[in-house]
């Protein structure tokens, strides 16, 4: 059969045209996405990678709310200069509890995947509330409101942990029970700093 004849048929029957588009446009997804999603290899946590504790989880959701990933990647590529600058390159298993993933697509600011422990909590706090107090040339926005609000003002932490447990994050009943107490008295900036300080912990050490 000739392609031109097939085309003649497709463009005369809207049902066939729709079917043709569906078929042709789905192949790429079937090849790349389906195996990636169904293959366990990409979802197995790396050694030392555990679900976020309630404080870090809350901090992570603040990171998402403020779209930090617009300017900061969390993905150290296996390139010499990148490993020298940021530390060991990122592995798939380190992100097994990241919903959604926050690798980002742009580095207006530096990568943060290995930032955990590099600076003190006190520095992060100053820097988040007023970046130019410590980095004069910085073009990062200031986030003064983070210091003014309780970390979990919506009271959502238990619902969040239960939702994640349904997706396979191994939170115990006791952990969920104790979560609000862990957040008691903390502000948003405390939670965000806790999240940042935990970043990349499972892959630290041994940077060349």
């Amino acid at each position: 059969m000739r392609a031109i004849d097939l085309q003649r048929r497709l463009e005369r029957h809207s049902g066939w045209l729709i079917f043709g588009i569906l078929l042709v446009s789905s192949i790429g997804g079937l090849v790349q996405v389906l195996p990636s999603v169904l293959d366990d290899g990409l979802a197995t946590p790396a050694a030392g990678t555990v679900p976020y504790d309630p404080v870090a989880l809350t901090g992570r959701d603040i990171y998402i709310r403020e779209s930090c990933s617009t300017c900061h990647s969390q993905q150290v590529r296996p390139l010499l200069a990148e490993v020298l600058r940021y530390g060991p390159f990122s592995k798939a298993g380190e992100f097994a509890f990241d919903r959604p993933f926050l690798w980002g697509s742009k580095r207006t600011g530096p990568d943060l995947h290995r930032v955990g422990g590099k600076y003190s909590d006190a520095w992060h706090r100053i820097h988040l509330l007023d970046p130019r107090a410590v980095v004069p040339d910085s073009i990062m926005p200031a986030y003064p409101w983070l210091a003014e609000r309780p970390a979990d003002s919506g009271g959502m932490i238990q619902a969040k942990m239960r939702a994640l447990r349904r997706l396979g994050h191994p939170y115990t009943d006791a952990e969920i029970e104790a979560a609000p107490a862990a957040l008691q008295g903390l502000t948003e900036v405390d939670a965000l700093v806790a999240f940042l300080q935990g970043l990349g912990a499972s892959g630290s050490g041994g940077s060349p």
């Binding site: 192949i27 079937l30 090849v31 389906l34 195996p35 169904l38 293959d39 290899g41 990409l42 798939a92």
Partner: peptide, 18 residues
């Protein structure tokens, strides 16, 4: 990181056939 046997065949066949 390479896919398992079934998915490997799946990828190979669909890619080459398409």
């Amino acid at each position: 990181e390479l896919p398992g046997q079934f998915w490997s065949g799946w990828v190979l066949v669909l890619t080459l056939a398409s």
